[in-house]
Design a protein around this nucleic acid. Structure first.
Length: 808
RNA sequence: GGGAGUUUAGCUCAGUUGGUAGAGCACCUGCCUUACAAGCAGAUGGUCAUAGGUUCGAGUCCUAUAACUCCCACCA
């Protein structure tokens, strides 16, 4: 029997253990139930989980629980993304080491060790927040199965010439010492200086003005551009110009309409490579290649006396010298936005290095991605527009190689003689080319091979999670049967990366969609415009504190907030809201069940009108709630059942309790009727609430209902409406009774008297006089009315005298 | 510059196919009522960002404008 105050800590802990021990959420391999498979996004192991993760996960978990309670067998794994740069950076930070300074095996060992302790804490947190994934189905993106899948994917694509190797210039982070994909870049406003330089014409006939923020690129200057329409500079086109400080370099003045006439001086220097435009010009005009900056962000040999300096130091020194030599005629301080690497916020450079790319950006392919995007069910629908817009703007192939250490190696060796790549056998995967040899000969006769030292970007693995889940690496037939998976959820920030790339891989490998439905959740904002992130992990709003102060059910209640896909502002007040509901559920259940202790549920011969009414009203709420879940609107669903629940407490229980308390007055039959209604409605409410609030509902279910309902857990029970005969007017009539009760309360409130104060008479005129007559005992009891007179006619109430208690 | 989103009560947000503006919180007035004062009952509060248009009728549809947010492009 439920007693005392609700102790969420004890209760949540108890059932979390029970669910794990009993395997309540386990996937049943040989079940005859239909499977519902979820491609859970493996959270990136890069620090602490925060409320932002839980927000997206718990909303998806609610949809998963809904599917489970429709009788489906859930394939609902929880993987972890723990390879690649984010994890490597975490290891470097936590262990205070730099990956490139120690042997790779050593670093990997340290990383694996750290990763496993983080996995454990992530898993625990998922359990503590009431997630219903099957932890036995998990994977790590660094484990053997994932590596095998990623490598197989790579070999498959490379052999079909969909993956290719090229040394086209691509974004490079000098701090992380690796190439990065353009999708991993962010804009950041930086203070800088616009330097106006006079370049001298080679024929000594004068100077031309050029403005630059990056004078350290002068040694890599390969051309000068003006706009062909710019009359000011027409006479210089085709002339040679000496590069300041590097006078023996002479470059030609060319024209291109990408040059903005009113930007800077209207004359641009093209260097290899200051930015994306330089790359394009270099390609288009076949300009020479000069590398001024190395992997680590230092000046190269060609920078002469500046060689070896860091970029910023070289810039300072060069500006000094330019001033000394009289090249600078003006300097303007500006703030401009520059591309930075999202992981470390360091400005990126463009370096030409051999990288592996996957073809994604031809017009035909883009058309395909859009077609596939249109076949996918997006929740909410509006998120599709972001995807389509992104695909339309795709202009670069996807670079997948990274010059880092902790990740999936490329299973490839290059012939030392001709450079041709040779791939590992699929059966041998996973393979690390650094620790194994290529066994074979090259067509050119070469017998010596060089292993690839790069690793794959984390996205190259994260984009094959459906294939990992569906066992593609081991059994292609099984995978073909299982794909597309039913559902995937992710944050709106990774529509462009994770979703698109997973769609691309599924298309290339299985020629189908990776999933049927995609749920895209919004962000938790710490403040207007500030996304919550790991920085907030240890704040008052950190997960541990929230769990400690409020418990998982309250947090989940908060997560089921409003329209799906919207951002939400985190505030203490907002989180508190759920506490009230939990408390109410506890008290109402405790109260109702106290009248059901000696009751054995069975349909009674006679069901009283208001009892019939509340069951019909529950069914209405039931269907409304189900409709919301069908629409993947977990917040609306919660709101629907919650609305009904408060109505049930404040109106129905108030009516029923008189009959439950006093069978000697109202009769045993009236009590049994109310018990039947209470049993069914409370059970129904708990089941629907169990999706949002898995702990308190399980506690109440196990305390009372389990012995009759026989399900091992409320979470394995089936959602269903109460079995009732059709009854057309019951809702209208019952609502009118509630309305009359409400008016009685209003009357008492206006007269500032207690609700229990008696009124000697009430004259009710109603269009449903017969129904009102049939429940007059309920109205009398709940309203404290001594005599009721009921007439047929236009709805109206006439109150008699208030009977004042002389003791007051 | 291109695209997407947002703008409704003091705050956080709902508002389906056009038909009398809603909830929770806060505030105010009452109520110890044999589950719950973390409760109950009731009241106050809105030119639905602005300006036009379509319509018998617009928070909702159309056009324009403004502010904020995000994505992309540009950032010499």
């Amino acid at each position: 029997m439920l007693e005392g105050k609700y102790n969420f800590k004890e209760v949540e802990n108890k059932w979390q253990k029970y669910w794990q021990e009993k395997g309540i959420y386990s996937y049943k391999e040989n079940s005859n139930k239909p499977t519902f498979s979820i491609d859970t996004p493996p959270p990136t192991v890069s620090g602490e989980l925060h409320i932002g993760h839980i927000y997206g996960f718990s909303q998806a978990d609610m949809y998963a629980r809904y599917q489970r309670m429709l009788g489906k067998n859930l394939y609902y794994p929880l993987g972890f993304d723990n390879n690649g740069l984010p994890t490597e950076l975490l290891v470097e930070k936590k262990k205070n080491i730099r990956a490139y300074t120690i042997p790779r095996e050593e670093f990997t060992a340290i990383a694996l060790d750290l990763v496993s302790s983080y996995n454990q804490s992530y898993r625990d947190m998922m359990i503590h927040t009431g997630m219903s994934c099957d932890l036995n189905l998990g994977y790590n993106t660094i484990d053997e199965r994932s590596q095998k899948t990623s490598q197989k994917s790579f070999i498959d694509l490379a052999k079909r010439n969909i993956a290719y190797r090229d040394d086209k210039p691509s974004p490079w982070c000098c701090k992380c010492r690796t190439s990065v994909a353009s999708a991993e870049l962010e804009d950041k406003d930086m203070e800088s200086v616009f330097n106006y330089l006079n370049f001298r014409l080679a024929d000594g006939s004068g100077t031309i003005p050029i403005a630059t923020t990056r004078p350290e690129f002068l040694p890599a200057c390969v051309a000068i551009f003006v706009n062909p329409e710019d009359d000011r500079y027409k006479q210089y086109v085709g002339k040679m110009v000496k590069v300041p400080l590097f006078e023996d370099i002479e470059v030609k003045v060319l024209t291109d309409d990408k040059v903005g006439i009113d930007k800077g001086t209207g004359i641009v220097m093209c260097c290899t490579f200051g930015d994306q435009t330089d790359v394009e010009w270099w390609k288009e005009y076949g300009l020479p290649f000069k590398q001024a900056i190395d992997d680590g962000g230092r000046m190269t040999e060609i920078a002469g006396k500046y060689a070896g300096m860091k970029i910023v130091d070289a810039r300072k020194a060069i500006i000094e010298d330019l001033k000394k030599e009289g090249y600078i005629y003006k300097q303007d301080a500006i703030v401009h936005s520059v591309k930075v690497h999202e992981r470390c916020e360091e400005g990126i450079e463009f370096l030409a290095k051999k990288q592996w790319f996957i073809r994604t950006s031809t017009p035909e392919l883009k058309q395909k991605w859009i077609e596939l995007g249109n076949q996918l069910n997006w929740h909410p629908e509006s998120m599709k527009a972001r995807y389509i817009a992104w695909v339309n703007n795709l202009n670069q192939d996807w670079s997948i190689s990274r010059q880092r250490y902790f990740g999936v190696p490329f299973p490839v060796w290059y012939c030392k003689k001709c450079g041709k790549p040779h791939f590992a056998n699929i059966e041998d995967l996973p393979v690390n080319p650094l620790s194994s040899q290529y066994k074979g000969k090259c067509e050119c006769g070469g017998e010596e091979f060089e292993p690839e030292t790069d690793i794959m970007d984390t996205w190259a693995t994260s984009s094959v999670t459906p294939q990992i889940n569906c066992n593609w690496a081991e059994n292609e037939e099984e995978c073909a049967k299982k794909m597309p998976m039913d559902m995937r959820f992710c944050g709106r920030d990774i529509i462009t990366t994770w979703s698109l790339r997973t769609i691309i891989k599924a298309y290339y490998h299985q020629n189908c969609l990776p999933w049927k439905d995609l749920m895209v959740n919004g962000w938790v904002m710490a403040d207007k415009g500030v996304k919550i992130s790991k920085r907030f992990a240890n704040s008052k709003m950190g997960l541990n504190d929230l769990l400690d102060n409020y418990g998982a059910d309250v947090i989940r209640y908060w997560c089921a907030n409003g329209a799906y896909g919207r951002d939400v502002l985190l505030s203490d007040d907002g989180v508190k809201d759920g506490y009230k509901l939990i408390n109410k559920i506890w008290n109402a259940s405790k109260f109702v069940l106290s009248f059901l202790q000696d009751y054995i549920p069975a349909k009674p011969n006679k069901i009283l009108p208001m009892d019939m009414y509340i069951m019909h009203k529950f069914n209405l709420a039931y269907y409304a709630t189900i409709k919301c879940y069908e629409d993947v609107e977990v917040g609306y669903a919660k709101a629907e059942i919650e609305k009904f629940f408060w109505d049930f407490c404040d109106n129905y229980i108030e009516i029923a309790k008189n009959r439950l308390y006093k069978p000697e007055i109202y009769g045993e039959e009236a009590k049994i009727s109310a018990q039947w209604a209470c049993y069914n409605v409370l059970l129904g409410i708990l089941k629907l609430f169990s999706i949002t609030l898995p702990h308190i509902t399980e506690e109440i279910y196990q305390d009372y209902f389990a012995k009759y309902e026989k399900d091992e857990s409320i979470h394995l029970s089936l959602l269903k409406p109460i079995d009732l005969d059709k009854n057309d007017n019951i809702i209208e009539c019952g609502d009118e009774v509630e309305d009359i009760v409400s008016k009685i309360r209003q009357f008492k409130s206006e007269n500032k008297i207690s609700m229990k104060t008696q009124i000697d008479s009430l004259e009710i005129t109603s269009q449903n006089a017969d129904f009102i007559k049939s429940v007059d005992y309920d109205i009398k009891a709940v309203g404290g009315i001594q005599n009721i007179i009921i007439n047929s006619g236009e709805n109206n109430l006439k109150f008699g005298n208030i009977i004042l208690d002389e003791n007051n």
